[in-house]
């Protein structure tokens, strides 16, 4: 970037590191920030640093929060017999949006992927077993993604948790609401048939 002032060039380079931001978008954002008042730019910079300083991982479920225990783990009104296992904090938020689930969570902070070389040591599986030792949890709901990595993780956890004797369930898979049956592929449709229930 020979035509830019060095500080602007550095900002463009830094913005390009963000996911989904290419050179053009980085350039547009940098020029936008150049035009905003200094205070506005300071607020953005301060907010990023504040978030980095304050956010921590919950010592129980590995969700993110600002305290040692996250808001959900501190909530004593939830059903302690249910534990929903998700890959990332974003997945937890997606389930919370349903307002259907009232139990607690366990965030694995990743998934198994042979092709990416991510093995069992790279997820919070050992911590999950430790959480089940006191016998309070009656059902573990595995809500990993319906892709190869999520399925591999679910099978691994299933095998790992079976000897503990807790009920293990997997979230249902199949047709999305509002979709058309005729356009569903055979894998999705067969999963929907497998997971059918009494009407």
């Amino acid at each position: 970037m020979p035509h830019y002032a060095p500080s602007l060039s550095r900002l463009i380079e830094e913005l390009q590191r963000l996911p989904g931001i290419g050179p053009k978008t980085a350039q547009r954002l940098a020029f936008y920030l150049l035009k905003v008042p200094r205070e506005e730019a300071s607020v953005l910079a301060y907010t990023i640093l504040e978030m980095k300083d304050r956010i921590r991982v919950c010592s129980i479920c590995f969700n993110i929060g600002e305290e040692d225990k996250c808001k959900i783990c501190r909530d004593g009104t939830r059903d302690e017999t249910l534990l929903c296992v998700v890959e990332e904090p974003n997945d937890l938020l997606a389930i919370e949006r349903t307002r259907e689930y009232k139990g607690y969570y366990h965030v694995l902070q990743g998934s198994l992927s042979p092709l990416e070389g991510r093995g069992p040591e790279d997820i919070r599986a050992r911590e999950l077993i430790n959480r089940l030792k006191d016998g309070q949890v009656r059902e573990v709901i595995i809500a990993t993604n319906p892709n190869v990595e999520g399925e591999a993780t679910a099978f691994y956890l299933g095998k790992l948790l079976k000897p503990i004797g807790v009920r293990i369930t997997r979230i249902a898979m199949g047709l999305p609401m509002g979709g058309d049956l005729e356009y569903a592929d055979e894998v999705t449709l067969s999963r929907a048939l497998e997971g059918r229930r009494e009407f």
Partner: peptide, 13 residues
């Protein structure tokens, strides 16, 4: 290859 690391880690565990 990454899958070999995975297979080794899985077998060890």
């Amino acid at each position: 290859l990454r899958t070999l690391d995975f297979l080794r880690a899985y077998a060890t565990l």
